[in-house]
Amino acid sequence: MLKKLDPLLHNELRLAIMSLLMTVDDAEFNYLLEKTESTRGNLSVQIQKLKNAGYLSVKKTFRGNYPLTICKIDPLGRAAFEEYVKTISTYFKGT
């Protein structure tokens, strides 16, 4: 019986956000926007969902006069991502 994939990560945009954040210490909102080729609204909503689950933290600050949003993966998110990748690999072993 194959294990169920984490529904929070099993979404195209949320998975892309988490994959990007796994490779960096932190990333600005605009970076995630550019790399995921998403819309601002959709990206904000998905980041909020991941934040509510404790998978990432969001810091809002300023650079000069402009607002700056910085996202950083949390230990819970890192563990969930690793588990997700492990589970996916069992799907391939099963085929």
């Binding site: 979404n11 195209e12 998975l15 994959s19 990007l20 796994m22 490779t23 996916i88």
Partner: peptide, 23 residues
């Protein structure tokens, strides 16, 4: 990116693509 049901191959492709984005 639009919400849609992913299969494991697509998931793996997203992970790989995003990891390679960060250089």
């Amino acid at each position: 990116m639009n919400p849609k049901e992913l299969d494991p191959k697509e998931s793996l492709a997203i992970i790989t693509k995003m990891i390679h984005q960060t250089q």
